[in-house]
Design a protein around this nucleic acid. Structure first.
Lengths: 196, 196
DNA sequence: TACAAAAACTAATAAGCATTAGTTTTGTAA
DNA sequence: TTACAAAACTAATGCTTATTAGTTTTTGTA
C-alpha cells in the first residue's frame, strides 16, 4: 500500500490532521470513522496509530490550533496604535480571512468542539470566553470614546462574530462573488448598517 | 416503570421529540443514543419504538417543523402591506423570537440537518435555499427602491441570517440582558451599523 | 549489502449501537 | 370481572466502532 506522503513542510501527522479536518467537517466528528480517515489518507486504519495517539487527539489539535491563531492575532491587534474602530475592522477582516484560508479547521473548531474530552473541553471554552471578553472590552472602550454608538457591547460582539462565522455557507455554495467584495460589504454592513 | 406522560396538547410522540431535540442539541445527533433518550423520557429504549419509527424520523420531524415555521412566516410577510425595510425588520424579529422560544429545535435544525437521510436531506436543502432566495429578492427590491444601501444582497442576507443564528451563544450563556434589549440592539446593528 | 528503525499490514478484542422479536403488564371500556 | 389494545418489559441480533497485538514490509544509513 502507498505510504503517507508528507509535503515539504508537513509531517505525516500534519497530513492526517488536515484530512481529518476535512472529514470531520463533512461528516461530523462522531460520524466520521477512523476507517474513512484511513481511506482518505491511503492507508489501513491501524496504521494511523503509528502517527497519532487517538481520534480525540486529532480533534484537540485542530481546535487549539485555530483558537491559538485567533488569540495570537488579538494579542498583536491590542498592541497596534490605532483607534478602536480601526482595530475592530482589522479583527473582523482577520476572522474573514481565517474563514476563507483555513475553512476546514475553522469549521471543525466552530462545530465539533463539544466532542473534546476533559480537560480540553473546559480549556477550550475558557479560552474562547476570554477572547470574547477582550472583544467586549474593545467595544466598551470604543463606545466610551464615542467611536461607536450607544449599544450593548455583548450583543454587538455576538452579532459580529456570528455574522463572520456565517461565511461557512458562502464557502459551501462557492458563490461567484469575489472574496474582496464579500469582505468589504460584510465589514461595511457590520460597521455602518444597510439602511440609508 | 413509569409510563410516558403526555401533556395536555402533546402526544407521547411529541414528548419524545422534545426530549430528543434537547438531547441532540447537547450531544449531537450521532453521539446521542436511543438509550440516553429513553432514560430522559423515563422508559427502556425499545419502548420508544411503540411511538416512533426510528431515530432518523425524530431528526426529520424536528428539522422540517422548524423549516416549515420559517417558510410559513415568510409567506405571510410577503403579503403584508409595508415597505421593504419594515418587512425585513419583521422577519429579523421573527428569527430572533424563534431562537428564543424554540431554542432546542432551531438549534438542532441548524446544526444536525446534515445527518438527515435522503430524500429528506435534499428536500431540506432545497427548502432552505428557496428561503434564502426569497430573502435575497427582498433585499434586491429594497435596494432598487433606495431603502437599502447599494450592497451585495447575498452578502447582506448571509450576514443577517448568521448574526441571528448566533443567539444560540446568548442562550447558552444566559446573560442578564433582557431579550427586548437584545432584540432591539441586534436589529439596530444589522440595519444601521454601530459606527457613528 | 546488511542492519535498524519506521511504518505498513492482518487479525483480534471488547464495547456500543439501533432495532426486532416475543412476552408481560397496564389501562380502559363493556 | 372480563376482554382487548396499548405500551411497557427482557433478551437477542447483527453491525460498527476505536484501538491493541503481533508480524511483515519498506526505508534510510553505515
Amino acid at each position: 500500500m502507498a505510504k503517507i506522503k508528507p509535503g515539504k513542510n508537513a509531517s505525516k501527522r500534519d497530513v492526517i490532521t488536515q484530512k481529518a479536518a476535512a472529514l470531520f467537517k463533512t461528516k461530523g466528528f462522531s460520524s466520521a470513522s477512523m476507517r474513512e480517515l484511513a481511506e482518505a489518507v491511503g492507508v489501513e486504519a491501524p496504521s494511523l496509530y503509528n502517527h497519532i495517539g487517538s481520534k480525540s487527539e486529532l480533534l484537540q489539535g485542530i481546535c487549539f490550533k485555530v483558537a491559538n491563531a485567533f488569540t495570537s492575532y488579538l494579542d498583536s491587534a491590542e498592541n497596534t496604535p490605532a483607534n478602536h474602530a480601526t482595530r475592530l475592522e482589522q479583527i473582523i477582516r482577520f476572522h474573514i480571512s481565517m474563514m476563507l484560508d483555513h475553512f476546514d479547521e475553522v469549521y471543525v473548531a466552530n462545530h465539533e468542539w463539544k466532542h473534546l474530552k476533559e480537560p480540553y473541553l473546559s480549556n477550550f471554552l475558557i479560552q474562547r470566553r476570554g477572547y470574547e471578553k477582550r472583544l467586549i472590552s474593545l467595544l466598551e472602550n470604543g463606545i466610551a470614546a464615542k467611536e461607536f454608538k450607544q449599544t450593548n457591547p455583548y450583543v454587538a460582539v455576538l452579532t459580529i462574530l456570528s455574522a463572520v462565522r456565517g461565511l461557512e455557507f458562502w464557502q459551501q455554495h462557492k458563490k461567484n462573488i469575489s472574496s474582496q467584495v464579500l469582505e468589504d460589504d460584510m465589514v461595511n454592513h457590520l460597521l455602518k448598517g444597510i439602511t440609508k
